Computed example of a mutant assay.
Amino acid sequence: MTGGPDAVLVLGEALIDLVPSSDDPGAHRAQPGGAPANVAAGLARLGTPSWFAGGLGGDGFARLIEERLVSAGTRLDLCARSELPTALAVADPGPDSTGYHFHLHDTATFRLPDRTGEVARFGAVYAGGLAAVVAPAAAVVAATARAGAEHSVLVVDPNVREDRTLDHASAQRRLRELCGRARILKVSDEDVTALWPGAAPEETCERLAGENRLVVLTRGAAGSTAFTPDLERVSVPAERVEVVNTIGAGDAFMAGMLNWLGGAGAFRDGGAVRLSSDRAARMLTSASRVAASVVARSGTEPAPTASLRPPVRW
């Protein structure tokens, strides 16, 4: 196995989204999903080397997930495998975002491998999503995040989800701790409101960035803003497209953002937290374009041509 200073290790869940059929509202189609798996596939599609460290089961859904990741170019050397079934997320798409009802427990999806010894091989380590709060995966994510923060660049997208099967207080605590270790943090306005209520999202992001991290706040159609440790704030509008699908848009944004940062060499020597205003704007524009390539069509795969990788490194 190799990695490299611009490669990304993605830790978390790969599951199946059951999405309402556009032809028959009473039917659902199975679509590979899970925020970390979407990010891993998106990175590979955009040209960034990505390794996915998740749990793959022994059913037909697991084979569908594996085919999706392999076809994108994601490496699966670090996955754990078992004969348990794959977790399911029943999607309830809305005009601006998608709600979910989960079937998570006693699945292969959350039997994550311990890869703490591998993190130093990678320029960045991504963590977040359901695996950060669902046992037994949550303990593995926490340990890997600690190692990633020490030996690599820890990237976190909390991707807050509400469901009756999740312990709300425990989930919030775990996600806040995970965000506190991140060097690069991407949050939606909904994430910030859920995790740090009582303050405006922008105020919270400024505080988090002031603790020596790059923070990116996304607001869907309202665009995105980057906050840096010197308290500079840079905003760009969302790409204007006809919305066909919102599932996976935030994950595509994250993949586009990390693809740009990796191409800029920003995983090295603290580069991500020292972005100039111009470079931060370019990063956000690239990420927004990648997200738009997903929103404008069905599925969660970004178009490879959507990326605007920087022409030169630092």
Score class of each variant (00 low, 15 high):
T86E: 07
P85F: 04
A87V: 05
L78G: 07
R63C: 09
P93S: 09
V70Y: 08
G99R: 08
Y100P: 05
S82T: 15
E83C: 13
R81G: 12
E83S: 14
T86S: 14
R68N: 09
A80F: 08
S82A: 12
L64I: 03
G94V: 07
P93F: 07
I65T: 05
P85G: 05
L88N: 02
A91N: 05
P93E: 03
P95L: 06
V90G: 03
D77K: 06
R75H: 11
E83P: 02
P95D: 07
A87H: 02
I65F: 03
L88V: 14
G73I: 05
S82M: 07
F61K: 03
P85C: 10
G99L: 12
P85H: 07
R75M: 11
R81Y: 13
E83M: 11
L88W: 00
L88T: 08
P85T: 14
L69E: 01
S97F: 13
G73F: 01
L76Q: 03
G99H: 13
C79F: 04
A87I: 14
V70S: 05
R81T: 03
R63I: 04
P85R: 05
G94F: 06
G73N: 00
E66F: 15
P93N: 03
D96T: 15
E83Y: 10
L69M: 06
A80T: 13
G73M: 09
E67D: 12
L64E: 00
Y100N: 04
